[in-house]
């Protein structure tokens, strides 16, 4: 089913990122489907984060293209996507101000900002912390704030870099619940992880990276039952290889 108003799917073609003669990323073709939960899987150093950053436009690739389905302007692309970083950036302000600042940067007006911030905080159970300084929150609270802050911008496409990697099981659970809410809302999610459990529970589509190369793009269920590549098989069987 194709959503004619969405800029997705996003298609990555012949993407390469090189630095000092070393190839850091090599992605011949990748398709990020609308409203799917896309999980980028792979061992440490596989290039998962780099891929996310290139897709989000933080790093310019050496060659290759990132195509959107609808012809949209660069500004619009920027507006319709957001990213949550592995170590969330907490502005030295209150929780609420972290929301209003992001909204202000997105061009939302003064009164509207406050309303939208309060709404986002209420949705994700952060209202009680609205006036606390963001930087004294716990790791789990900071991650929730970062995701809610990104979500408040109303993106079609949300990138998340290792959203649960440094959290305890309870906090991880809360993050997964938030992601479910966003998925139900129709947001396309792209997240990196090396946590097989999270990938199994969550993914619709798996992008398996190894040594900077996209090795396998597969439906999640098939990936976990019958992986197509040796590398993926080895990874799933915890036979790490370098």
């Amino acid at each position: 089913m194709r959503d004619t108003t969405s800029m997705l799917p996003l298609i990555v073609r012949d993407l390469r990122l090189e630095m000092d003669g070393r190839t850091l990323l090599d992605v011949p073709l990748a398709r990020i489907q609308n409203r799917q939960r896309n999980v980028i899987l792979g061992p440490n150093g596989a290039g998962k984060s780099l891929f996310l950053r290139v897709c989000h436009g933080l790093i310019a690739p050496t060659s290759g293209r990132i195509e959107y389905t609808l012809p949209v302007s660069a500004t619009e692309i920027r507006r319709k996507q957001a990213m949550v970083f592995q170590k969330p950036v907490m502005l030295r302000r209150s929780v609420r101000a972290n929301f209003t600042h992001a909204l202000a940067m997105a061009g939302v007006g003064w009164y509207e900002r406050r309303r939208m911030a309060d709404e986002a905080m209420a949705q994700f159970g952060l209202s009680g912390l609205a006036d606390s300084p963001a930087r004294v929150l716990s790791g789990g609270e900071q991650q929730r704030l970062a995701i809610a802050r990104a979500a408040s911008l109303g993106p079609d496409l949300l990138f998340l870099d290792e959203p649960t990697s440094s959290l305890d099981p309870t906090a991880s659970r809360q993050i997964e619940d938030m992601l479910d809410v966003l998925h139900e809302r129709g947001v396309t999610l792209v997240l990196t992880t090396h946590d097989l459990g999270l990938a199994r529970r969550f993914a619709d589509v798996i992008f398996f990276f190894h040594n900077g190369r996209l090795v396998e793009e597969n439906d999640a269920e098939r990936f976990f039952t019958q992986p197509e590549t040796e590398e993926a098989k080895a990874f799933l069987e915890h036979r790490l290889f370098w």
């Binding site: 989000h56 502005l91 940067m105």
Partner: peptide, 20 residues
Amino acid sequence: DHMTSLGAGRLRSIPTLLWD
């Protein structure tokens, strides 16, 4: 990263950085 992700360039980030 955060500012770039929000679409704020270096110049537009100055007030944010000064305040923070």
